[in-house]
Design a protein around this nucleic acid. Structure first.
Lengths: 170, 170
DNA sequence: CACTGCGTTCATAAAAACTTGAACATCGAC
DNA sequence: GTCGATGTTCAAGTTTTTATGAACGCAGTG
């Protein structure tokens, strides 16, 4: 058994700098508004701070998170277009890089999340209005009317999406 | 001890109708996208379905939720402008009513939530950029630059808010 | 073939969010 | 003043979400 160095801290291959820590915390904080897990904010934050491409392994070590968290967090971030994966010839590792262009991010969100949800909500609304229309269900006065109004708002929101896209693409 | 009626369900003073139940479920579902607690969706949903003004007590009974949940949920909903409180002469109860005008709701959200957060984020960003600017903090190459870009996006988002307001006010 | 490096999966542990209910404060009525 | 009705608060219990790490699958390499 080698000599014990009890005061020696667990060694990370490369420690993150105070500046990086600050940026990571900023994105963790920001992520809270979007109900994102802390680990996701940390991963994106470190990739953003670092600027270059990093491997899953580096993220695990430098953030002291588990491989599972890193893998799942990266999947989510890839899913919304917030990180890109890169490859290097003769290297089996995946290299992750933060997408730092807000327009690209928002475009991805509008396209993949918001529009889908608006359509989904519209379907549900139509079915709801029909179900409520049946007199047997005892709908309060004016309810069908209020639901129809909801539908018209939904349509308006759908029209808003491309407007926002245009504005941000500038 | 009175005679037991083991098959008798607990009696609510006035049961909600199937139509109302459907509407409640719709808003619970919708609330999940906004990360709102189930109880909040239920409360808003029932107020929306009902159309009229209801007391905290009625919400508690008809939704079978606790007084605590109802009180806290109503506070949240008041906070974002989704319900209004009304009074009646000679009655100490508060009467709650759903705000069903989307423009009013979104205006409230943009004004009270989004703008505040954008400003908050901007403050944090400026402090972050300054901290990161200090060479002692070991910032990676180009980080200050990326942070400045974030700031410019933040400003762009702020400019977007009135645009959306205008569009929805139509 | 076995072995190793890399990423994913998933049962379980840990943490966070939500709900409950009882205690409390406030306001009028008596 | 006491009493009852009403709404809020908060500690404790419950449920949901997030993190962990061991097991697994897959590709290359030898």
């Amino acid at each position: 058994m080698p000599r014990a160095h009890i005061l020696e801290a667990p060694r990370a291959s490369s420690r993150i700098t105070p500046a990086e820590r600050e940026v990571v915390e900023f994105f963790v904080h920001l992520g809270r508004y979007l109900s994102l897990p802390r680990s996701v904010g940390e991963i994106y934050g470190l990739l953003f701070a670092n600027g270059g491409a990093m491997t899953l392994d580096e993220l695990v070590r430098q953030l002291s998170i588990s491989k599972g968290s890193a893998s799942q967090g990266l999947r989510l971030l890839r899913g919304v277009g917030a990180v890109r994966v890169g490859y290097r010839p003769g290297d089996r590792k995946d290299y992750y890089e933060a997408e730092v262009e807000l327009p690209a991010l928002v475009r991805g969100f509008l396209r993949d999340q918001l529009s889908v949800r608006l359509n989904h909500a519209n379907d549900r609304l139509q079915r709801l209005r029909d179900a409520v229309g049946d007199p047997a269900n005892g709908a309060p006065n004016g309810l069908v009317n209020r639901l129809e109004r909801l539908e018209s708002w939904n349509k308006k929101a759908k029209r808003l999406v491309p407007l926002v896209s245009t504005f941000l693409k500038i």
